[in-house]
């Protein structure tokens, strides 16, 4: 077993565009579930709308990259409103059912061949980050071509530009969420998580607050999808239901009702994923485990599932959560 390359690949997992994209989405889920108590199992749908919105705006409407991103965000706001108006008046578990279904509807709409011209169907969309007219995201890259960093953290100018953009978005996102949650607004949101009738009896418009929380979390999800789209193709195969559960795992790992928890949780999750991918395939090749390398790479998802279960049972508050704050124990 080549421990050097395993270590190298694992360390790379610490800072990748994927980690940043999923951290943003996990922050959105923290807003939804951790703070407002909205059981959203459709975060992949919000990400899809962000990513596809950006790509479609650039490719079909010819918008510059920043306007394309705004288009994706506006799309997620509209999606949140459509989702929220009928469901937010219902009990929380209904929202879970509706969100998981609507995320699938979104994905199938992008997959269907009916809109191939716009969505690219199963192939997805690509080539929207570099545009011949110079309006693409990579065209705006101020970094000269070359290799940056050292060791496992070596990036070309394109990846580094994505990382810089992603980190800026993540930092802005963390600061905004922190500023919101320490304010009286955040207090109302947390109160709604605990008991919305009590908050209603104190004269707060619970529906409006829940809607605001749904929209804000949705925008974070969309930003996750957009950051993802700045370095990868968007395709229906990405925004699947299991993506939603990866983000849930990241969130619960870090702590649902915390600000930094989702970020650290995502980093740990994706680093662990990188580690498992490498270790399991090495183990399979060296014959320690009687499985093929393909089977070995699926095995990590089994382990993720087991990990999620253990986490929810034994440490529901996550790594950063307050010990007294057992979100699942009521």
């Amino acid at each position: 077993m080549d421990w050097g390359s395993i270590l190298n690949n694992t360390l790379q997992g610490l800072l990748t565009p994927t980690t940043l994209a999923f951290s943003l989405a996990a922050l959105g889920l923290a807003m939804h579930f951790g703070f407002a108590g909205l059981l959203n199992f459709g975060i992949a749908g919000f990400m899809a709308i962000g990513g596809y919105g950006y790509a479609i705006a650039v490719l079909t409407f010819g918008l510059p990259w920043w306007a394309g991103m705004l288009f994706g965000i506006v799309g997620s706001i509209i999606f949140a409103l459509i989702l929220g108006i009928p469901t937010l008046r219902l009990r929380g578990d209904y929202l879970a059912i509706v969100t998981i279904a609507s995320a699938e509807i979104i994905r199938l709409l992008f997959l269907t061949t009916a809109f191939t011209d716009v969505t690219g169907s199963a192939d997805g969309l690509f080539g929207f980050n570099t545009r011949t007219d110079g309006s693409g995201f990579q065209n705006a890259n101020p970094l000269p071509a070359g290799s940056y960093g050292a060791g496992p953290f070596t990036y070309n100018e394109q990846t580094l530009w994505v990382l810089i953009f992603g980190i800026i978005m993540l930092v802005v996102g963390v600061v905004l969420l922190w500023a919101l949650m320490r304010s009286p607004w955040g207090r109302v949101i947390k109160g709604i998580r605990e008991d919305e009738d009590a908050i209603r009896a104190l004269g707060k418009n619970v529906f409006a607050y829940k809607m605001q929380a749904l929209v804000i979390g949705g925008v974070y999800g969309a930003m996750g999808g957009i950051v993802y789209a700045t370095f990868a193709n968007v395709s229906p195969g990405v925004f699947v239901t299991s993506l939603t559960f990866f983000i849930w795992t990241s969130l619960l790992l870090g702590g649902a009702a915390t600000i930094l928890g989702p970020v650290i949780g995502s980093i740990l999750f994706w680093t662990l994923q990188a580690f498992l991918t490498n270790v399991l395939s090495e183990v399979a090749i060296s014959g320690i485990l009687p499985v093929s390398t393909t089977q070995a790479s699926t095995l990590r998802f089994v382990l993720v599932g087991v990990g999620l279960m253990l986490l929810v049972i034994y440490r529901p508050q996550g790594i950063f959560g307050d010990k007294r704050e057992l979100t699942f124990v009521k």
Partner: peptide
């Protein structure tokens, strides 16, 4: 209906109009 995972003081401050 006490808001369990909020502190007693936060519970109170929520009441203000």
């Amino acid at each position: 209906k006490a808001l369990g995972l909020l502190t007693v003081l936060e519970n109170m401050k929520l009441g203000a109009k």
